[in-house]
Nucleic acid binder design. Structure first.
Lengths: 359, 359
DNA sequence: TTGAAAGCGCTAACAA
DNA sequence: TTGTTAGCGCTTTCAA
């Protein structure tokens, strides 16, 4: 058992105890450097005896680079972000990196502040997680910081959002929002649905706009006309899903299916349907996006698009340390997962089948 | 708009640009120090012009204390931990602290390593989140580190777990596991249940043992005999809840209710019941613990014990910076939340009522 | 293979 | 009100 550690044990203390210079201690601690076996042993012993742990801040200062990365999410407790954060944390730990985590609460101003804060911590990589708002001024400001970060030896990593453009020095790992939305909408279309409501948001958030684009493309490909009244843009949460569908139901639902642009929204859709006595999928088919655990908690189980969130996070962590060569922007695949929340629309099924099912 | 930041802008650069000494720059940056308004303005200008951001590592070294705290959870993506982490992060941000987050994956060896790692980062506070394994050797080792941390000017904060004893210098914020379990078990008893299965774990984890103790006390108080066959100790996850109850059902369920020691376990209980065609709460009543969002996603909605997880996290963050005086160990309250997963047991209800309800 | 010493960027006496 | 300067704990040439 190591001795009870003393206050503020430093490298110099260890050097004194081992009767060597601080340089030698530094070398054995850093590994990769020729040190005589006996000297090394003495040093190792002294470290153990004194309960010494290195001061990483001092090391960071001396080396002028840290082994810390930063990760900015909207909300730590949100499953979407939590799963990505898990991937980042795990891969970072494997790579010997520590993670500073911060929450923007969806404010782009705060996000900007946070990357500056992370910059002050000299984080080697700063990972921005989740969709970004499409805003010219904001993009410019972010590009500035990306450049500053790069100048300081760090790198800005975009995780699940589009690149900044303008040759801003960033790396990115994304997934195909448009493609997943296209797939899941096509699935609905294939079942015979023609009036499919879209519920998502916020307005200019990339995740939402790209998913909406996939929805649109699927409609077009099936020759279904676009209907503004079916598209509801608000937020990415259950309350919005619920309020929207409750409203729809109140005014006589025109849709036979709803594409909840993420699983949280789908939770709200289920609630509204339940309250109104509308059966899923009998009266209304529902699909989601993300495939977070709640998708399998819902009854009927939710058909949705699976995004490998943890993998996304792992890739992002890797991009923080990759050297130029293998720092290729990555894209991970999404996958439609069919469960029990979709059925053919009532109108498409012969009347007899409906009534017999209800008898 | 600030100028495009240059690489490695330092305090000295700012001082030069503003034609003052580094000390002066340091003073305006630190705030709270008398500096002439005009000088201050020049410095502020230079900072903006150069896009300067302070190097916190250098500051930490010079001040020999950091504005960083560490938080150790089992798993970042688990809602229980995610919500606590959210509280920590939010309060920390308000206090001007950055959070290093690390996951132990439930290994106590790794947890010990992580506090050493955090110690090397000179984290001012290290928050250990969630139940702890009752293990003498482990406790001793942790106590050592608590002392080392304290010697270095930091503090070990225990969040949701019992104190170390032996006068180890820690602070803690907890909640009443035993009391909550007593309350929810009593609720079941009050409905007429006498054969209540307990499903939780792992074996010596404090959260589990304390909840089990509450269960036991409630039984005793109602004069219900303890039955080993009803107590199932394994893990705190859905898979265990499912497997356990599936087994129970296969061998002819002896219980009329189950106390899932956390909501995740309850998810598994619901799955097993669903598979076996057992109705909740008609055939089987179920209660959980924690009141994470899944409790309201389940149908019927889960009766459970609400723990103010975010508040718990906020308190923990505060304890990292509190000075001796107001650093009182805190305990936040829990609350029984009754929803729809509990009914009177079949045996206790008169036969007529049952059949009429089903007709 | 090891040691001496000059920093890394910032703070905090101590002077002025 | 401001400047000078000696560290904070570690790394890393450059010599030996």
């Amino acid at each position: 058992m190591p001795a009870a550690p003393r206050a503020g044990v430093t490298l110099a203390d260890v050097a004194a105890a081992a009767q060597v210079s601080t340089a030698t201690v530094s070398r054995v601690l850093s590994g990769n450097y020729p040190v005589a076996a006996r000297t090394r042993a003495r040093v190792t012993q002294a470290v153990a005896d004194l309960g010494y742990v290195m001061n990483v801040n001092a090391r960071a200062l001396a080396r002028s680079r840290t082994s810390t990365i930063g990760i900015v999410v909207q909300d730590v407790a949100e499953p979407f972000f939590g799963h990505i954060a898990r991937g980042v944390e795990r891969r970072a730990a494997e790579l010997g990196l520590a993670c500073l985590i911060m929450a923007s609460r969806g404010s782009k101003e705060r996000e900007l502040e946070l990357v500056d804060l992370l910059r002050s911590y000299r984080a080697g990589g700063v990972i921005l997680v989740g969709g970004a708002t499409d805003d010219r001024g904001y993009r410019t400001k972010l590009a500035h910081r990306a450049r500053a970060l790069a100048d300081e030896g760090g790198i800005l990593v975009l995780c699940g959002r589009p690149p900044l453009g303008d040759g801003a020095p960033t790396r990115s790992v994304g997934y195909d929002n448009e493609g997943g939305a296209f797939a899941v909408t096509s699935h609905l279309l294939a079942q015979g649905h023609r009036r499919i409501a879209y519920v998502g948001g916020p307005p200019r958030l990339s995740t939402h706009t790209h998913r909406l684009a996939g929805y649109r493309r699927a409609l077009e490909q099936h020759g279904v006309a676009w209907d503004d009244d079916l598209v509801h843009v608000g937020r990415f949460d259950a309350a919005f899903g619920r309020a929207t569908v409750a409203g729809l139901l109140r005014h006589g639902l025109a849709a036979t299916a709803v594409f909840a642009a993420n699983d949280e929204v789908a939770v709200g859709v289920y609630e509204a349907a339940e309250e109104a006595g509308v059966a899923i999928p009998g009266d209304l088919s529902v699909v989601g996006y993300d495939d977070v655990p709640v998708a399998t908690h819902l009854r009927p189980r939710l058909t949705t698009v699976s995004v490998p969130l943890e993998e996304l996070g792992r890739r992002a962590a890797e991009l923080c340390v990759a050297d130029g060569a293998d720092a290729v922007d990555a894209v991970v695949g999404t996958r439609l997962v069919v469960r029990d929340s979709v059925a053919a629309p009532r109108a498409a099924t012969e009347p007899g089948a409906l009534s017999s099912a209800e008898s």
